[in-house]
């Protein structure tokens, strides 16, 4: 965050100056970094926000004790949310649906798209387990009526049922539905919906700050050479190539 502001400020300064590329040395850059004061509590809040949103309940608990940062949500609700997420990730979709309904019956009733995706995931799991009869019955009874209500659901349903038509599903045009990635996608959709229902933002703030940092660096690249962060995981300043 700190770096972000410096980059932005630098951008503004350079904008006002000449068009030739300016070179900023490491010393100058670090001096500027030291001039910006950021409250530790704010940094802690960012970390807590990340832990809570991503559902790391134990880490959040520890972090709270160590840093004294209060989470903006009841930590108990994270456990419930994580149980739902995990159930989808493991393919126990029916269980996940029941858990969501216990948590708040409004979520699936007022979010037809999410409900459809969960049901679709359930169908995928039935097909994965070779339960063809059951899969067909389920598709007809639960999913077909939704397809009638919504054209795009119908298309997705047809794509899913197409899985039954292939001998070798791993090598068919709709094979990616069986991929673990599909489960993760569905799981994160449920996670976001639960968070929204709890009046909580569905994405953690930290990743968007990093995105902003990258954007700002790219903007600055056109105007100046400066110590850049290239590896976000290490956050090391790298000397400008002059």
């Amino acid at each position: 965050m700190l770096l972000f502001w410096i980059v932005i400020r630098q951008l503004a300064e350079i904008e006002a100056m000449a068009t030739s590329k300016k070179v900023i040395t490491r010393e100058e850059w670090e001096k500027k970094l030291n001039d910006v004061k950021i409250r530790k509590e704010d940094m802690n809040k960012l970390v807590m926000n990340f832990l809570v949103t991503e559902g790391y309940v134990e880490a959040a608990e520890k972090f709270r004790m160590e840093s004294g940062t209060e989470p903006d949500i009841d930590l108990a609700t994270i456990t419930d949310r994580m149980a739902v997420k995990k159930a989808v990730q493991c393919g126990n979709v029916e269980d996940a649906i029941e858990k969501v309904n216990d948590l708040n019956p409004e979520i699936l009733d007022t979010n037809p798209q999410l409900f459809f995706h969960l049901q679709q995931q359930r169908l995928i799991e039935l097909i994965r387990n070779g339960k063809v009869e059951e899969a067909l019955e389920f598709a007809q009874e639960e999913l077909a009526p939704r397809g009638e209500e919504n054209q795009s659901f119908l298309e997705e349903l047809e794509r899913t049922v197409a899985l039954l038509a292939f001998e070798d599903v791993s090598n068919c045009p709709v094979g990616e539905l069986l991929d673990i990635q599909q489960r993760l996608k569905t799981a994160s959709e449920v996670n976001a919906a639960i968070l929204t229902s709890q009046s909580h933002e569905k994405d953690p703030k930290l990743p968007s700050l990093l995105k902003m940092l990258i954007w700002a660096q790219n903007q600055l690249d056109e105007k100046a050479a400066y110590p850049r962060i290239n590896d976000l995981s290490k956050a090391m300043l790298e000397d400008p190539a002059v």
Binding site: Q140, E141, A144, P145, G147, E148, L154, V161
Partner: peptide, 16 residues
């Protein structure tokens, strides 16, 4: 795929 209105409606009604 029996997605026509009549087919699925009646099947839902029966099984329910």
């Amino acid at each position: 795929m029996p997605t026509s209105a009549s087919a699925s409606d009646s099947s839902v009604a029966v099984s329910a």
